[in-house]
Design a protein around this nucleic acid. Structure first.
Lengths: 222, 222
DNA sequence: TTGGATTACGCGTGTCGTAACGATC
DNA sequence: GATCGTTACGACACGCGTAATCCAA
């Protein structure tokens, strides 16, 4: 058939319109202006010689042809997605999402540099940074809302239901959920003795974070 | 996953390279310069952060990641192809029989290639090819024995009872029955000026046939 | 030296966004 | 009049081709 000019961009737009039944919302969902989306849809329809949507200026409906097209369009997008996932998996790339908690102290500035390097190494891990109180975040880690948190606790007071490692002489402690099986399999080589009170970036903590990512960053961990 | 920048164009190129194991031949197969293909492949690899091909400057091999990617890439292209086919089918796939007449001149070799492409596009149309003299076939078209004929006539002598379009400066003329209502609804954008005497394949004539098929190939036309 | 992939660079097309327009409720 | 899709138009980016470069046999 003559699909040489069809591109995934158009399929994405078609699916978005089919889902929202509304060009404007579909455009927002695709992060484009809706004129761009309208143009692409129209271009595709002209290319196919077939109307995919019936616009009645208050409601957008799929035509029978649009319904038929939608099936293959979704499959095509899913297959493309599988392709990139499988390629990444073949080389064992780190993917997924990582929710990190930190306390609002001077250590936060170090985290910024660490995260930058982390993102360079693992560009496909979506990192979410959450700032809060130590005890609250310890609970969030236990609940699974956070994957890992850097926080300060009293020395003789290890948090419950989570796994903790002391990273330095200072009060800084990494806390991860104790329910995570992977967390128990390997040990975290904790940071060398260098307290956060020093102004220098404690790169060892970056190392710890990088190691942590090996476990929590995988697709299954999310 | 992160496939928002991946496009079918890149998948087509990847498949072509995987098939030919050679960038140059793949580029020819895709009707582009191999620099363009190289650029797209490289761009995709950079986007994925994964090498899909191992170039050893005399042989191009798929990496394991490339093999993994190829599977989904092929499926994606096939699904997209299905999408456009199904959309076309939903609005009335081209079916029926088409009786084509041609004159036994050099134009016949072009017809062969055109018909091959036509059959790929419309596998459910039974095409019958009939060779004969121009005046005889013009009469057959008028009688409905032929659906369309490519033939040569004197310039000032339009055939009676049929609709004719001049396809080029040369004597080649398409003749269809004047009784066909569909033939009057739209105009044929006739071929650009390139006489059949040139040895080059006049692709414009293929275009004309493809356009004709839109009308006569429909179920109602048979 | 030849075959073949990458890189550099100018150019055309395509895609996007802003904005004006049109249509419908 | 409000909402939503289309059309117009200018700007920017992207993909492409020509050609120079590099690399291996």
């Amino acid at each position: 058939m003559e699909m040489d000019r069809v591109e995934l961009r158009q399929l994405r737009y078609v699916v978005a319109v089919a889902e929202t039944r509304n060009f404007t919302r579909a455009a927002r969902q695709c992060f484009v202006a809706q004129s761009a989306l309208s143009h692409q849809i129209g271009s595709l329809e002209r290319e196919l010689g077939v109307k995919l949507f019936a616009r009645t200026s208050r409601r957008v409906e799929l035509t029978p042809a649009g319904e038929a097209f939608l099936v293959g369009a979704r499959q095509s997008l899913e297959a493309a997605d599988r392709a990139v996932s499988d390629a990444a998996a073949a080389v064992g790339e780190v993917r997924g999402r990582l929710a990190v908690g930190i306390i609002p102290t001077v250590t936060a500035v170090d985290i910024a540099a660490v995260l930058q390097r982390f993102r360079e190494r693992h560009p496909h891990v979506r990192v979410g940074l959450h700032v809060g109180a130590s005890d609250v975040m310890a609970a969030e880690v236990a609940a699974g809302d956070l994957d890992v948190a850097f926080l300060g606790l009293a020395a003789g007071n290890p948090p419950q239901g989570v796994e903790a490692r002391e990273l330095g002489r200072g009060p800084l402690v990494a806390v991860v959920s104790g329910r995570r099986g992977a967390a128990r399999r390997r040990r975290v080589s904790h940071a060398r003795a260098r307290g956060p009170r020093r102004g220098r970036p404690p790169s060892a903590r970056g190392l710890a974070l990088r190691r942590l990512s090996r476990r929590f960053g995988r697709p299954g961990a999310e």
